Amino acid sequence: MRELVLAAHGSAVPGAAAATARLAGAVRRLTGVPVTVAHLDHQVPSLPWVLAGRPGAVVVPLLLGDGYHRSVDVPAVAGRFDCLVTPGLGGESAVALALCERLREAERAAGAPADAVVVAGAGSSRAGGNGGTLAAAEELGRLVPVPVAVAFCSAASPSPAEAVARARAEGFRRVAVAAHLLAPGRFSRALEGLPGAHAVSAPLVDHPRLARLVAARYGAALDRPEAVPLRVA
């Protein structure tokens, strides 16, 4: 049985590692296989260090978009150790549903439902790198009865502050921010203090739907390893 490695971005913000560890534990319970977290930045152990001890593992990128890390970094490292790299987590209904549920939690904590929503993703300048956020916003727009806009915390526009200000200028007064982010980090911290936001939802990493999605990615890789994209020879 191939081991499972979660390739997380990593963050120096307290709480990020614990949140990812909770996801790893949930996935371990679902799959019954060893699950190890590796990091692309900020934290150890690093992805090369982890994969060096687990050749042939299945690597599931804990990434919501196909930016540079997903498209270049992870496959390049995995290829050195004959590992399979599954698709990331972006663009899946499970992510949009988890985002909606986190949004509802934030609205309840704020005491009233939003009259407009801004979906805030990390942002990428790479072609296709923002597709996960755009897909989540489109699906969320079918789940909630209010207008949904998109913003990016870096590398693309509009920024969350600009999107919230625009919605308020259009007459909306309870503008909630749905954080299309996996783990606590500098982006989630910036959103928490966003002026004019009625509510800001929590990151998604330890939502039960994410654990089930990761387990499904792993199972699909075992069932049809030849069909897993980005297997690097």
Score class of each variant (00 low, 15 high):
70 R>A: 14
28 R>D: 09
55 P>G: 07
71 S>F: 04
51 L>R: 06
44 V>M: 13
42 H>S: 14
20 T>I: 15
63 L>Q: 05
55 P>N: 03
68 Y>Q: 06
63 L>K: 00
53 G>K: 07
22 R>H: 10
49 W>L: 11
49 W>V: 12
47 L>C: 10
66 D>V: 08
31 T>R: 10
23 L>D: 08
60 V>S: 13
39 H>M: 12
29 R>W: 03
57 A>G: 04
67 G>D: 10
75 P>Y: 04
72 V>P: 03
39 H>N: 13
72 V>R: 04
30 L>E: 13
24 A>T: 11
61 P>R: 01
59 V>F: 00
53 G>W: 08
29 R>F: 08
46 S>G: 14
52 A>T: 09
65 G>V: 13
53 G>L: 11
35 V>T: 08
60 V>D: 13
32 G>Q: 10
44 V>I: 15
71 S>Y: 01
68 Y>K: 00
67 G>T: 09
45 P>K: 14
62 L>Q: 06
36 T>L: 15
45 P>F: 12
54 R>H: 13
31 T>Y: 11
73 D>N: 01
65 G>H: 09
51 L>Y: 01
25 G>H: 07
50 V>M: 00
29 R>H: 12
73 D>I: 02
64 L>P: 03
37 V>N: 02
47 L>I: 01
59 V>E: 03
21 A>G: 14
62 L>W: 00
61 P>N: 03
43 Q>R: 15
62 L>N: 11
24 A>P: 08
47 L>R: 03
50 V>T: 14
54 R>F: 04
52 A>Y: 09
51 L>P: 05
37 V>E: 05
68 Y>H: 02
20 T>Q: 14
49 W>I: 02
75 P>M: 12
39 H>S: 07
35 V>Y: 05
35 V>A: 07
28 R>E: 15
30 L>K: 00
34 P>C: 10
40 L>H: 00
48 P>Y: 08
72 V>G: 12
50 V>A: 08
50 V>H: 02
72 V>E: 12
35 V>R: 00
69 H>V: 05
56 G>M: 02
24 A>K: 03
25 G>D: 09
48 P>N: 02
61 P>K: 01
57 A>M: 03
41 D>C: 12
65 G>P: 09
55 P>M: 06
63 L>W: 01
51 L>I: 08
43 Q>L: 15
76 A>C: 03
19 A>M: 12
27 V>D: 07
61 P>T: 14
44 V>W: 15
29 R>K: 13
38 A>Q: 06
67 G>I: 10
49 W>P: 01
59 V>C: 04
26 A>S: 09
23 L>Q: 09
19 A>E: 15
76 A>R: 13
33 V>G: 05
41 D>R: 15
33 V>L: 14
35 V>H: 08
68 Y>P: 10
30 L>A: 08
55 P>W: 02
30 L>G: 09
52 A>N: 08
28 R>K: 06
69 H>G: 04
59 V>H: 01
22 R>E: 15
49 W>H: 13
38 A>C: 14
69 H>M: 03
51 L>T: 11
